[in-house]
Design a protein around this nucleic acid. Sequence first.
DNA 1: CATATAAATTTCCGATAGGAAAAGTATTTT
DNA 2: AAAATACTTTTCCTATCGGAAATTTATATG
Lengths: 202, 202
Amino acid sequence: MSEIEAEKSSEEGNSRAQVAERVREIRRKKGLTIKVVATRSGLAISTISKIERNLMAPTYDRFSRLADGLGVDVSELFMAKGEQFLPGEFSLARTGEHSFHQTENYTYEMLFPHLRGKSMIPMLGTLKPFEKMRFDRLVSHEGEEFFFVLKGRVVVQLEGKDPVVLETGESIYFDSRRGHLYASAGDEDARILCVCTKMSPD
Amino acid sequence: MSEIEAEKSSEEGNSRAQVAERVREIRRKKGLTIKVVATRSGLAISTISKIERNLMAPTYDRFSRLADGLGVDVSELFMAKGEQFLPGEFSLARTGEHSFHQTENYTYEMLFPHLRGKSMIPMLGTLKPFEKMRFDRLVSHEGEEFFFVLKGRVVVQLEGKDPVVLETGESIYFDSRRGHLYASAGDEDARILCVCTKMSPD
DNA sequence: CATATAAATTTCCGATAGGAAAAGTATTTT
DNA sequence: AAAATACTTTTCCTATCGGAAATTTATATG
């Protein structure tokens, strides 16, 4: 009956229809019945049924409770169902089998260059002493980034922040969109293990 | 009038009142008027006014449009301020400041336990020798997993696969939904750096 | 200070959310 | 296959959402 309605809110990647579909998908994947989710969320059975068939647009608080009942984060219900790398697969990164990637300031070793569609990009980095590096500008890209100091001391410069020094065994987590650069804080090369989330292909 | 209502949905950190407050806060911080947000979101002025004063619980699609109008991600409106991994932020994990998490077989140190909403979960793990571990069943959960051997040798058992031994400096990437377990392959404890993608809480 | 302009609130009311319970549709048991 | 059980959809109805426009409150201008 309200098919005109259904189309009009086709904003980003989460139209009513898509979210509705996603809710049902998540529930089924978890092997839950509407009744169970109803109990756990405190919502009426009929309400959930209607939401899943896109017959109703829940108020945001109900939506929040629904996420609870499903055992997922609210934001997950808004995400388009993503690409996931091949189900059930695994891959090893053996010493000496890495794919080296040399830039002016960094030497990276991609650990799983052949694994496509994965949601994390792990790599080993070798950092030269700060003085020997040449920086035009800070690096910035989509996603989040985490790195752990394997050897040496590392100085991190984040755009608009004071430089930070990380000792061996320490780590940092940040938004990659903020301009950033690292370097060894000592005289010798430092070594880090860095993991980025999937970033825009380039 | 509906004060009983207001209290009952005090689940996590996002009651109606809190979200309402957060909306106004974000709008003001961006220097936007209700009218502007109304135009950009396509919502009525009165609607936004009511939402901000907690006189109304918007349906999730309106809520989504409101987020658009404000220029933020929907999930941000659901997060209690401060808990979220805010755009442009960063966090350090200093030695000795980790949150230890002991299970029968593993000892984990969550590196950024306070950072919520991040898309990776980095942790340090200490693995006992294989013989000393008691396994009922393989562990399995949503998401992807990556770990790197910091010290010692680690034996990895993936469901339906032959055991694999990783030397120091080697790593593995796999689908966490496949049953898995690790242990030290030597006589002494091994040490790993493990990163999971966001998984269901349990 | 009065008036104009902008922003926020309140009112009014048709449209819709959403619960309780009945009805319908699998799925399993005897 | 009939009965029982489990799951989902439909119905009915009240409370509430949410838009247009009027009213009130804040801010600026002559």
